[in-house]
């Protein structure tokens, strides 16, 4: 079973998303939450990095955190799955371990 990585900071403010993408083995999952949801948005300075990562890892973004920030689900990078808190629980249970990038 693969690992679930969580990233909770904006890629504009910290390099956690970049580090996570660099260090997650193929087949892992990354969940973007809190200010980390900014990393899921299309047409930003970081979108290409995220698109490229999806060749190797599955990326999820927490819907409630998008809504809180007025970010539209329609504007997330194609291929990223928008999930809720229940799905977060399922993802945690489905993966061998959870690694939070701080």
């Amino acid at each position: 079973m693969s690992m679930l990585h969580t990233v909770n900071k904006s890629p504009f403010e910290r390099n956690t998303l970049e580090s996570c993408i660099g260090l997650a083995v193929p087949g892992s999952a990354i969940l973007l939450m809190e200010d980390g949801v900014i990393g899921a948005m299309a047409n930003t300075k970081h979108s290409e990095m995220v698109k490229a990562a999806m060749a190797n890892v599955k990326i999820y973004v927490l819907g409630p955190d998008l809504k809180a920030r007025g970010l539209s689900e329609g504007n997330v990078v194609d291929g990223i799955s928008v999930v809720g808190y229940g799905d977060f629980v399922d993802l945690t249970a489905e993966h061998a371990a959870v690694q939070s990038w701080l």
Partner: peptide, 20 residues
């Protein structure tokens, strides 16, 4: 910088349980 997100239209914090 990320401060521009503070003024995003249509913020809805219901599900995160924080004050909008």
């Amino acid at each position: 910088d990320d401060g521009v997100y503070q003024l995003m239209d249509g913020q809805n914090t219901e599900e995160v349980g924080m004050k909008n």
